[in-house]
C-alpha cells in the first residue's frame, strides 16, 4: 500500500516468536468468543428473556389479583407484604416511585417473577447482589429466580426516573 517505493531490503521475516504470539492471541480470542454461548447455556448467567407485550392496565389488574390472593404477611411502609406459595407466578411492578408489592420468598424455592412498569422506564437491580434488569412499560418480563441466601434484598431502581428516583427502593425478604 506504500505510495513510495521503498529502497533495499527493508523488511524482516516474521520471527517464530511473533508467530507464536499471534497464535496465542488467536486462541485466546476464540476462547473469549466461546465463553459467550457457554455463559448463556451452561452458566445460566443470562436472564431467560421471556418477554410478553402487555399494557400498563392489564398488568396492573394481574398484580392486584396477585396481591388480593395473598397470602398476606403484614404491611410495611404502606405496602402489602406478600408471601406467595413456592413454584407460583409472582408479580412485582414499578411505578413512581415504588416497587409494589413487597415480597417474602423462601430460600431454595423457585418462583416465576413477572415484572413490568406502570409509567416510566425503571431499573430492577438487587442490592447488594448487583443484578440489573431494565423494566419498560408495555413489556412483561418473566425472570425465573431461586433465592440461595436468606436475608433482605433491596430492589433499587437504577434507571433514571425523575425526581423520586433515589427513593425508589423496594424489598424482597428471603427466609
Amino acid at each position: 500500500m506504500s505510495l513510495q517505493t521503498l529502497q533495499g531490503v527493508w523488511w524482516k521475516k516474521v520471527d517464530a516468536s511473533e508467530k507464536m504470539w499471534i497464535g496465542i492471541a488467536l486462541v485466546w480470542c476464540l476462547i473469549l468468543f466461546a465463553m459467550m454461548p457457554l455463559w448463556h447455556l451452561k452458566g445460566g448467567q443470562n436472564p431467560s428473556f421471556e418477554t410478553y407485550r402487555t399494557t400498563p392496565e392489564q398488568f396492573l389488574k394481574k398484580v392486584e389479583a396477585f396481591v388480593a390472593a395473598g397470602p398476606k404477611a403484614g404491611e410495611e411502609k404502606g405496602l402489602p407484604v406478600i408471601a406467595p406459595d413456592p413454584k407460583t407466578e409472582v408479580y412485582m411492578l414499578g411505578r413512581l416511585w415504588q416497587w409494589y408489592p413487597t415480597l417474602k420468598l423462601k430460600k431454595g424455592e423457585t418462583y416465576r417473577l413477572h415484572l413490568s412498569s406502570m409509567d416510566l422506564v425503571h431499573g430492577f437491580s438487587l442490592f447488594p447482589l448487583n443484578l440489573n434488569f431494565m423494566v419498560l412499560p408495555g413489556y412483561e418480563y418473566v425472570l425465573t429466580i431461586t433465592p440461595t441466601t436468606t436475608g433482605e434484598v433491596f430492589v433499587v431502581c437504577n434507571e433514571f426516573c425523575g425526581i423520586g428516583h433515589h427513593q425508589m427502593v423496594g424489598k424482597i425478604t428471603v427466609e
Partner: peptide, 12 residues
C-alpha cells in the same frame, strides 16, 4: 461488552 457482566454493571 459481555452481557452477563453488563447486567451487573449497567446503570451503576
Amino acid at each position: 461488552a459481555s452481557p452477563p457482566v453488563d447486567l451487573q454493571q449497567t446503570d451503576t
